[in-house]
Write a protein that binds this DNA or RNA. Sequence first.
RNA 1: GACCCGGUAGCUCAGUUGGCAGAGCACCUGACUUUUAAUCAGGGUGUCCUGGGUUCGAGUCCCAGCCGGGUCACCA
Length: 486
Amino acid sequence: MPEDFRLRKLEALRAKGIEPYPLRFERTHTAQAALDRFEELSTAQETVRLAGRILTIRKMGKAAFAHIEDASGRIQLYLRLNILGEDTYATVVDLYDLGDIIGAEGVLFRTRTGEETLEVRRIEMLAKALQNPPEKYHGLRDTETRLRRRYLDMAANPEVRQAFTVRSRVVREVRTYFDARDFMEVETPVLQPLYGGAFARPFVTHHNALDQDFYLRIATELYLKRCLIGGFERVYEIGRTFRNEGMDRDHNPEFTMLEAYQAYADYADMMALLEQLYYEVALAVHGSPEVPYGDNVLNFTPPWQRIRLHEAIESATGIDIYAHPETDALLTQVQAQGIGVPERVTWATLVDELLAECVEPKLVQPTLLLDYPVALSPLAKRREDDPRLVERFEAFVGGLEIANAFSELNDPLDQRERFEEQVKERAAGDEEAQPLDEDFLLALEYGMPPTGGIGIGIDRMAMLFTNSASIRDVILFPPVRTRETE
RNA sequence: GACCCGGUAGCUCAGUUGGCAGAGCACCUGACUUUUAAUCAGGGUGUCCUGGGUUCGAGUCCCAGCCGGGUCACCA
């Protein structure tokens, strides 16, 4: 419900013949531009037109001060009865409120206390606010309101706007980086007849005209690979991806992922690509490869630490996973260490458990974990020296998984076998196993060049460069449960 | 999904042993022509998250639920 006193003032404005929501107002400067050019503008007594939201107002009888804010910053206004005239001055003092959007014209001067200020000659209402803004000193703290009315969170908390500004610059730098390396940005379907490219449960929707269910993509992988089969050699996509899973500090059901594929490259090339990307983005948005994150300072200077997966597990737990190739033997080892056992026990899930429980939390500085078991990686190519392993790495920093890359499997017959393994896993109760994609296998049979591919989490990248503890801090409008009152 | 914490005025928050619902900001009235969270004098604001229960009496205690956050689990 609108505030009564604001509705009364709205009507009072109209009664005076003032339109509270006029069509336009032309400003000459932003607040920051006016401050930057203060000396020249004030000396020349040049007329300056500014606009913004009223943040504070201090009324002192026949004069008043206010601060307004626009996207560039804040500036003070000085309002005097004998300059504005009785009627206009009374309108401002009586009918303008905190939160209203106004336009003001005047000249710049410096107050007795030294603050650059606009002495207002003309002023007009541009948009009357009917709701009170958050408290001017404490801002908006309530986490629920901050999420449900994120616009208020942005309006009241400048650091929130700052985080999204940084995120935007991160994304721009990422594009610049890939464009400079002759990668072509493409757009592949969000609605897919079959999902794949990751382990996750999908969202399902329905297309009425085709009378067919579609999945919201959980990855862009299989379509980007089709682009390579079609003859493009370097493609990337920055796109929203959807996974029907829980939400926590580093997971949101819809998130932004970059996937890039490069023909005639392998996972070692992807390592260099990732390291250099982070290094250049850090320099561009932060001015340094050293980036504070939580209690740590992360250093993105290449090369990053590289550890083979089984060595990382062995050094963390003493367990040599390849000395225990049987599930039961490995399970015994895991239980002997007092480590939690996953719901579905297979050799692969045990390895993943060791990784998640004992290795990943310790990875603060950027680290690449190399050479995963084939069972965990149905789309990656086997190593020549050990067919139990694939050429795959995942990158970790600050406790976050930030990238996943491999030498892409391009053997159509091996790929079919891997899919068939997945089908067995699914039948055994793994809801996240990937479905067999005949259309993709057909495409592979036409020949895909040897390829390196990588997926990079953009939201987590934004978290790192904004020193955000939660992914929600870098997603503008995270989902919240709908309430009737909202 | 489990556990913990929280939900009181538009906002930020108090509320004692169960005894009239509170403060600051915002708002209203008045004073004030260089203020800075302006100041000074005066004024009231409400589905105490919802629904039950105990009680002479519930913001407070009990039960159930809703919403949010955190931790854990899940996310091979």
